[in-house]
Nucleic acid binder design. Structure first.
Length: 295
DNA sequence: AAATCGTGGTG
DNA sequence: TCACCAAGATT
C-alpha cells in the first residue's frame, strides 16, 4: 500500500468551497451547537441520512438543550421524540449516555476519546467525531464515506473492505499535523464520500482527487465487494418491531391493548416475538393486557 | 465476529 | 421496479 501524504491531497481546499451548508457546520467551529449538539447529531446520523436528521435534531435540542435536561426525561418521551428516525435503541442509548454524562462528567460532554467510548451507544466513529468536530482535537474520524474514499483513492479498490480498526490507522497516517487542519481534513473526506465519491455513481468528473486516485489510475476496475449485505427487510423481525413500535408511538396514550396489536399480521408468532424483543430491549413494557412505551 | 437492529429515498 | 444504501454500535 502506498503512502499518501495529505499535503498532496487538495481535499481541505476543495471542502472550503464545496461543503454543504449543514446546520451543525456553521456551528461546528462556532460553538452554537456545542459538544452536546454534536453528540446528538452524531447519534442521529448513525445509519440515518443527513436530510432526515436535520429537522429531528433541531426539535430534540430545543426540547433537551443539555445532557442533564435529557437525563431527566422518561424513556417513553425519548422513544416518542425519536419518532421515525429508525433503530430506536439509539434513542435509549442517547438517553443513557446523557445520564452517564450527568453522573460521571458533571453534565458536560467529555472531550477525552476513551471517556467518550465508555458512554452508551458511542463507538469508534462517534467518539472521535465528537472529540474532533466539537472540541477540535486531532483524531482520525472514519465513517462509511471516509472508508470508501480511502479504498478508492489510496487502495485502488472499487469498494472498501468491511470496517476495521486498520481504517483508523490509515486515516491517522493521512492527517495534517495541526489540530485545526486535521479536523477539516476529516470533515472533507466524509463530505467527498457523501457528495462525490459516492457508493453507486461516483462523480469522478468533478472529483478533486482524480489525478491522484489509485482506483481511477487503474481504470476504475471492478475489484469486487466483500461488504456484508443487509438482510432483507420485507417480512423481517425488524419490520415487525417497527410496526409494533409505530403503533405505540401513534397511540394517544402510548399504550395499546395486546389483543389489538397487529391482529392481522401475517405471522402471529413473529409478531409476538417482536413484542418480546422490544420488551427485552427496553423499548416497550407490558402491563397487564396493555403494551406501553417504557417508563 | 457475524448477525442484528428501522425507515425512507434513489439509481 | 426493487435492490441498494445511509456520519454505526452492540452482543
Amino acid at each position: 500500500m502506498s503512502t499518501f501524504p495529505e499535503r498532496e491531497l487538495p481535499l481541505s481546499e476543495w471542502y472550503r468551497g464545496a461543503a454543504r451548508d449543514l446546520p451543525w457546520r456553521t456551528s461546528q467551529f462556532h460553538h452554537v451547537y456545542g459538544a452536546w449538539g454534536t453528540l446528538v447529531s452524531e447519534f442521529m446520523l448513525q445509519q440515518t441520512p443527513v436530510n432526515r436528521v436535520i429537522p429531528h435534531l433541531e426539535a430534540w435540542l430545543a426540547r433537551w438543550p443539555t445532557p442533564p435536561a435529557l437525563a431527566e426525561a422518561t424513556p417513553a418521551d425519548v422513544v416518542q421524540q425519536w419518532a421515525n428516525l429508525g433503530y430506536p435503541r439509539r434513542a435509549l442509548w442517547l438517553h443513557r449516555a446523557a445520564i452517564e454524562i450527568t453522573q460521571r462528567h458533571g453534565g458536560v460532554v467529555p472531550r477525552d476519546v476513551d471517556a467518550l467510548l465508555a458512554l452508551s451507544g458511542i463507538g469508534d466513529y462517534t467518539a472521535r467525531a465528537v472529540a474532533v468536530f466539537a472540541y477540535g482535537d486531532r483524531h482520525p474520524v472514519v465513517d462509511t464515506n471516509t472508508r470508501r474514499v480511502l479504498a478508492r483513492a489510496v487502495q485502488g479498490l472499487a469498494q472498501p473492505a468491511p470496517p476495521s480498526r486498520r481504517d483508523l490507522a490509515l486515516m491517522e497516517s493521512l492527517l495534517p499535523a495541526s489540530d485545526a487542519e486535521s479536523a477539516v481534513f476529516n470533515a472533507a473526506a466524509m463530505e467527498l464520500g457523501a457528495t462525490v465519491c459516492t457508493a453507486r455513481s461516483p462523480r469522478c468528473d468533478i472529483c478533486p482527487l482524480v489525478e491522484r486516485c489509485a482506483w481511477v489510475a487503474a481504470g476504475r476496475p471492478d475489484t469486487g465487494d466483500t461488504r456484508r449485505r443487509q438482510a432483507a427487510f420485507e417480512g423481517s423481525d425488524r419490520q415487525t418491531r417497527g410496526a409494533v413500535l409505530r403503533m405505540l408511538r401513534e397511540a394517544p396514550t402510548g399504550s395499546v391493548l395486546l389483543s389489538a396489536l397487529l391482529p392481522d399480521w401475517p405471522d402471529a408468532r413473529q409478531r409476538d416475538r417482536a413484542v418480546d424483543s422490544l420488551i427485552a430491549d427496553g423499548l416497550a413494557e407490558a402491563d397487564g393486557e396493555m403494551l406501553s412505551l417504557p417508563r
